[in-house]
Design a protein around this nucleic acid. Structure first.
Lengths: 338, 338
DNA sequence: TTGTACGCGTTATCAA
DNA sequence: TTGATAACGCGTACAA
């Protein structure tokens, strides 16, 4: 903070009280029009900028929302953030952005920092490595509004904004089955939240079609490209006869990583191995073989989460709610369609 | 802000003064070990979280940096943000993220809000539509540290982090000339900062090769895909004989938009029209015809800008500096190389 | 080692 | 319509 003009300085310059200046600047009714004008002019002249820090101290509101993201430059999250920002901007809230970098310790620290900054509420998408939820529970117990999005924690009794992950994954798997592929692999995320949901959808589709589940074809890939590459590598290290004919993945980055490995092997998508993603990343439609994927309304997820949070901030009686947005199969060519 | 535990409450619970609690919690030396322990235990038990708002009011520091981005979900900026965040995290600063949405009025308002929030410094990349810089000048005059990145304003006397835009654009144009293309178009951004620099590089390359500059081939596209599409549309509306044989663009999104229009026309990249971008967007290498582009170190830009800003915050004698990072031609196939 | 007084910039409250 | 006072939570400066 640099040297800033205060109410008191304006008041002294004008020979009125600080209180009157405050009233004038906040458009209160009980200020004589002539003094108001003098004050406004002087404030402008002196370059007054209200001090929200002081304001927050007394009002106990910061009009600030904390956002905890697992991986900032992941396109999906960038889009969610832009949705959050849009709503926050309209409602006159600011965003403090933190990055857990898929790391439990950083996530814990981020939450702690946001509490210290006295944000009015927190939006979180859980880190891939988080298995203990005490840090979330503490915040919730403290009465600070929290809304989860995308990677939500079922056990916690707060609002959540997600997509119908299980159904989306199931439909995609059914689509693959419809192509007549026999061996379908699944590159899934960690065993929580969307990772678990999407894996369940995959399994359900197989079971309904009396296809036995082969654990060799179910690999945990995490959420990043590198994980997709490694998981695919693991599959291709199986005896050739056990290779999958198709792969469904937990998200587009993983699919893209897997495709890289497939092509490295000299194999073709979808002729040798078909593949599908989940997200509809901006890259999906541009790939050499355009990626069939499950389309998630990323910006909408951000908007809805921000709306719910701000509603909860403004009215503590706002009920907790599970908001489930619809996904949509985005059929392109990587599944074998043309 | 919910009901939060204060130093005073801990003090009362323990029958000591608030000051002693403050000292214990801040690890000052002058607290007896036994009382320190009692206090730490009690603070933990009561769930104390330090109030940074109060702390900031007295210290006149918020350990918060304001970031003004023209388009949050633009991949390049998402990467810059992750670079900024990385440095800020290490130095214990938080980020308030604002989005000007390429809109001058929103940019002005964002700056104003950040001042009111008493951020310790501001990182800005200028909106596409900004032509008046008074709002920046005011902040600078107020003594609040500002660092520009990517879209910088030459006229302002503060630190700037950018890439060698002109050289990069020139080299790319020379590369196109080297392919023997006669008619080379340029889709350029607005006439400020990087828009101007990159256009100048293009022109310089032509002039050095005695190629006359044809204003029909120089189109302002803005920075977004849609602008690239529209600009290309304008070029394809020229008589066929005037069509360009190659196009250099102000960034990858514009190139991608232009390619869409080219393909719509039934033309091939690079056989009918060669094209090059600028950024090395994550999509660039994945395109059907992988995009030749000028690689910018996006994360590094964010890091350097954040470092410079924090140094300036910590030491007001830190000199203003123009930091120019190196670009690198990333030759793929869209230029005609194979 | 511990405590008291005061101020950071603002607003709510009550009095004039 | 205006002003004086206190309070928000914390830390500095000084006193005990």
């Amino acid at each position: 903070m640099s040297s800033d003009v205060t109410l008191k300085q304006i008041a002294e310059a004008l020979g009125v009280s600080a209180m009157t200046v405050s009233r004038a600047l906040n458009n209160r009714s009980n200020v004589e029009e002539s003094t108001r004008k003098r004050i406004l002019a002087k404030a402008e002249e002196m370059g007054y900028t209200p001090n929200h820090v002081a304001k927050s101290l007394v009002s106990r509101k910061t009009f600030t929302i904390g956002v905890v993201i697992p991986e900032i430059s992941h396109v999906f999250f960038a889009e969610v953030i832009s949705g959050i920002e849009e709503v926050a901007y309209q409602m006159d809230y600011q965003l403090i952005l933190t990055n857990s970098a898929e790391n439990y310790e950083r996530e814990k620290k981020a939450i702690q920092t946001l509490r210290s900054k006295r944000v009015d509420g927190i939006l979180v998408s859980c880190s891939e490595t988080t298995r203990n939820f005490d840090h979330f529970q503490e915040v919730i117990n403290s009465g600070l509004p929290v809304v989860f999005f995308d990677r939500c924690i079922d056990e916690l009794d707060v609002s959540k904004v997600s997509v119908n992950d299980k159904t989306g994954a199931k439909e995609m798997t059914l689509h693959m089955i419809g192509h007549g592929y026999d061996r379908i692999a699944c590159l899934h995320g960690p065993d929580i939240s969307i990772g678990k949901e999407r894996l369940d959808g995959y399994k359900e589709a197989l079971l309904e079609n009396n296809i036995s589940i082969d654990d060799n074809l179910i690999i945990e890939s995490g959420f990043l490209e590198k994980g997709g590459y490694n998981a695919m590598d693991q599959l291709l290290n199986l005896p050739k006869i056990k290779w999958p004919r198709a792969v469904v993945t937990v998200n587009d980055p993983v699919a893209i990583g897997a495709i890289e490995r497939i092509e490295e092997e000299g194999l073709m998508v979808p002729d040798d191995i078909a593949i599908a993603g989940f997200s509809d990343d901006i890259r999906a439609s541009l790939l050499k073989c355009p990626l069939t994927t499950v389309k998630q309304p990323s910006i909408e997820i951000g908007k809805r989460a921000a709306e719910k949070l701000i509603n909860t901030i403004k009215d503590s009686n706002e009920p907790a709610e599970d908001i489930e947005l619809e996904t949509e199969l985005q059929i392109r060519n990587s599944c074998g369609c043309s």
